[in-house]
Design a binder for these strands. Structure first.
Lengths: 236, 236
DNA sequence: CGGCGTGTTGACTGGGGTCAAGTGACGTGG
DNA sequence: CCACGTCACTTGACCCCAGTCAACACGCCG
C-alpha cells in the first residue's frame, strides 16, 4: 500500500490540537476531514508555493520544516518566518488571490492542502472553525509585531538569543527537548530572518559557546543556560 | 444637535469603499450599519485601546491618524504601524482576547467601533463581509512582511524613502496630494517604526533636502522628485 | 516672555558589514 | 572505500553606517 495514498483523518492526526479548533463534534470533524483536499509530500528544497502563484489553499504542516521568504524588486531576500508541524501557512495569498512569498521545505515534509473557498464555506456553518481561522491570522499578525520589535530595536546577541528561545519553546510544546535542537536552516537563513549577516550569526554563536551558554556542533544546538539567554533578551 | 450623537450610516460614509466590501445589497449594508456599535471621538494623544485591554471591537478609522506600538518587558518601544482613515485596527486582540499593543491617536480622530462577535455573526451570513475580513487580516500580514524586509535589509536612506513613498501613496489614494504631506508623528516615532534613532531620521531628511529630493519645513514635507526616492528604495 | 517639547547638527564611537582565507562536513562518482 | 568537489561554516582584519552624547535652534503655548 502506497503511503502517499493513506488518508489520515484529522480526527486521528496528532497535530490536530495545533491546527484545528478544539471541542468540535464528531460530525463537524468529519466535515472538516472532507474539506482537506490532498495530503502531499514536499521534499527538502522544494517549494510548496511561490511568489506570484495563484492562491487557492492554506496549508497545514503535518511534518517537516519550512521557511517563508519574500524577494524585493531589486533582489533583496528576506526570510519572514520558519514554520513547523501544526502551523498553517499561505495566508499571505488571501488579500490579492496571489501568493506574495515563497514557502520552501527545509526538510522533507508532509502537508495538508485546504482549499480556502471550502474553509470559508465551512466556517460559515461551524462557528469554532470560523473563530479558529481568525485566531490563526491574528496570531500571525502578533508574531510579526514581535519580529518587528526584534528587528527594530535589538542587538545581534539579543536577536539570536530570542530566536533560539523561540525555537526551543515551539519544539518543546511539540514534545521535543527544550534544550537540544537541530537547526534545519543555514546561518545565512537565520541571518536573513534576524536582519544580520551570516558571519554575525556565526560569531555570535561562537560568543555564546565561549560564555558557556550553548554548545554548538554544526546544526546541533544544546542550550546549557536558558536563563542566561533570557537575560540577554531582556536585560534588566 | 450634538455632533457626537449623529449616526452616519455606512451607506453614506465616504470611507466606505476603503473599509467595507463592495457590491453589497442595500439590505446587507443596512445590517452592517446596525452592527456598528458606536462612533466615537479620540483626541490627539489619547489611546483607543491599549496593551492588556480586553478585546471586543475592531475599529474603523473615519478620520484622524493613529500609531500602534508594542512595549517589551524591558521597556523597549516599537511603533508597529501608522494608520489613517479607512483602515481597520485592533486585529492583534483576536488571538488571545486581549490587545497586545497600544493604539494612540496622533491627531484628533473619529472611529467606528465594531463588536467583533457581531462581525463574526454577520460574516457567516454575508459572504462578501466574511471574505473582506479575511482580506483585511491578510493585507496586514503582507504589510508586515514588507516592514520586515525594510527592517531586515535596508539602509537608513532606503527606509526613509520607502516610508515617505508609502505615506504619500496612501494619502494620494484618499484624495490628497501625492507630493505634499504633513507628518502627524515625531521624528522619534518615525525612527521607532523604521528601526532608527531620531537623529538619523533628522540627518537623512537633511540629506534628502540637500539633494533636492524633498523640501521639509517642520512636519510639512514636499516631495520634489518621486522617482529619485524610488531609485533610493530600489537601487538598480 | 519664558519654558518645554521637538528638531538639527557636530564630534566621536562602536557594532555589525565586508572581504578574504581557510577548515570541515557531506555527497557523489570512480 | 576513498578522492574530490561543493557547500556551509568559522575566523580575522578592516571599514563604515548609524548610535551616542552633547550643544543649540526653533516654534508653540501658557
Amino acid at each position: 500500500m502506497n503511503y502517499e495514498t493513506i488518508k489520515i483523518a484529522c480526527a486521528n492526526c496528532n497535530m490536530r490540537e495545533l491546527c484545528m479548533p478544539i471541542g468540535l463534534t464528531q460530525d463537524e470533524l468529519n466535515r472538516i476531514d472532507e474539506m482537506i483536499g490532498s495530503r502531499r509530500k514536499v521534499k527538502r528544497g522544494e517549494t510548496l508555493f511561490h511568489n506570484g502563484e495563484r492562491f487557492t489553499n492554506l496549508y497545514a504542516i503535518r511534518t517537516g520544516f519550512f521557511k517563508t521568504c519574500i524577494t524585493s524588486e531589486d533582489g533583496r531576500d528576506q526570510v519572514t518566518g520558519f514554520q513547523m508541524a501544526g502551523e498553517i501557512i499561505g495566508m499571505d495569498g488571501i488579500v490579492n488571490d496571489y501568493h506574495s512569498c515563497d514557502a520552501v521545505a527545509l526538510e522533507d515534509a508532509e502537508i495538508c492542502a485546504m482549499p480556502f473557498a471550502q474553509i470559508e464555506a465551512l466556517s460559515r456553518e461551524v462557528n469554532a472553525l470560523q473563530h479558529h481561522v481568525h485566531k490563526i491570522m491574528s496570531r500571525e499578525i502578533v508574531r510579526e509585531h514581535g519580529v518587528m520589535l526584534l528587528l527594530g530595536s535589538m542587538r545581534a546577541e539579543e536577536r539570536l538569543a530570542a530566536f533560539l528561545l523561540n525555537l526551543a519553546q515551539r519544539l518543546h510544546s511539540r514534545g521535543f527537548s527544550q534544550s537540544e535542537l537541530i537547526l534545519r536552516m543555514t546561518r545565512e537563513e537565520i541571518g536573513s530572518y534576524l536582519g544580520l549577516k551570516l558571519e554575525t550569526i556565526s560569531r555570535t554563536f561562537s560568543r555564546f559557546v565561549e560564555d558557556g551558554i550553548v554548545a554548538v556542533k554544526q546544526r546541533h544546538v544544546h542550550i546549557l543556560n536558558t536563563s542566561a539567554l533570557q537575560d540577554i533578551v531582556n536585560p534588566k
